[in-house]
Design a protein around this nucleic acid. Structure first.
Lengths: 218, 218
DNA sequence: TGCTGTGAAGGAATTCACAGCC
DNA sequence: GGCTGTGAATTCCTTCACAGCA
């Protein structure tokens, strides 16, 4: 990852920026579905997710000819299709490493399953935490990680350890065959290029906001 | 924000993409500082934050002529300068709305102050939570929000309520004069264009990772 | 007529390559 | 010689505008 710009997809290729918007489209479509709307236009979809209609049409056209001219997009069909492209039609198996406050919050979060994810295992090094149960999983010692993953493969690992421990964890899970990591620790992970990493850092986002405040005040 | 691409900055303008990398540079520079390195080159900085040297030089050049040809960038000076541009030289005051598991984790997080932020107030609607203390602040009833903010202005509001409540909170804090919001609820907030919003959604990131897994498996 | 799908145009961001300075 | 700063070139993304179809 890190450097890749587009991803081959069937005969054509989907830009990275489009991929990042697909989850957003999906979320909006699910709202339209709950409103019992059978069809949406690119204008409606754009409005509900804060883009413009041309963007929506271009993005969706990368996935195929999903709409009907003169009518719009079938909501259920589009949900189905985008879910398929994102690979969340069946549940993805995630594991959590680092059962601190943040890790605990994630284990308790009930929104993942309906978005295609389930946290099926959690690990920590602290003996005091091992054995406790949260979100339906029992915290296991970090040493079990490799054995567990060999028995029950994991799609995505979520790292919520302190910064200092994150790289070592990444190395271990990569060696265990994991190809996708969500990193919540404030460090840039170094991984082989066939491993996808996404970095979430609230401090970074806060600093970006701070920049806009600073500009505004000038 | 939402739509803005570049931001005027003195006589010139800084691309949005550059701004998003500044916090990353800052983090790496702080590591160099701890290693007692007085000077870094664009190559070193690029390496430590996973970009390339040309990118680093371009980005930094938007902020002024901060380096010395033949030598590199003065670490302390650059930290100072970027902190200034990001507006985190003095502590920013943040307030948290929604003291659930995630909100609690944020209040407990000790990393914010060293990155220029302090959570100075926290609110919730649940009477059972009001009055409890976490991370040095007492959870106040949501109704106190406007009065508190009138007395002690807040720079940034962090919304960690359920999705359904987020927009109403946003409306209230915007009315109270807040110009920057970090939204952790999985909904697109609608705000006036002079208000900056950043959306953090782990499900979205997980789905993007899932996409890459799906492509890999094809 | 209404709305999608898409080539073409326009605009941004990244990378290149080298002039300019230490 | 080494490294920054930056116009120019390239690549990527977005927007436009309209052809094509229900």
């Amino acid at each position: 990852m890190e450097g890749s710009r587009t991803v081959t997809m069937g005969r054509t290729s989907v830009p990275d920026s489009t991929i990042q918007r697909l989850p957003l489209y999906l979320r909006c479509l699910l709202e339209f579905e709950q409103l019992r709307m059978p069809v949406v236009s690119s204008v409606q979809l754009a409005e509900s997710c804060g883009t413009n209609a041309a963007q929506v049409r271009k993005d969706l056209s990368y996935l195929g000819e999903l709409g009907t001219r003169g009518i719009g997009y079938d909501v259920d069909g589009l949900i189905e299709h985008i879910s398929g492209v994102l690979g969340v039609t069946e549940q993805r198996r995630a594991a959590l490493v680092g059962f601190g406050r943040l890790g605990g919050a994630l284990l308790g979060y009930t929104g993942f399953p309906e978005r295609g994810f389930e946290i099926v295992a959690a690990y920590d090094v602290d003996p005091a935490k091992i054995g406790s149960v949260a979100g339906g999983v029992t915290i296991a010692p970090l040493d079990d990680l490799e054995r567990d993953m060999a028995e029950h493969p994991i799609d995505i690992v979520i790292i919520s350890t302190p910064a200092a421990a994150a790289q070592a964890i990444a190395d271990r899970v990569v060696k265990a065959g994991v190809k996708a990591i969500l990193n919540l620790a404030p460090v840039r992970l170094v991984v082989p290029e066939d491993v996808a990493v996404r970095q979430v850092c609230l401090s970074t986002d806060l600093q970006v906001l701070s920049f806009y405040l600073a500009r505004k005040a000038l």
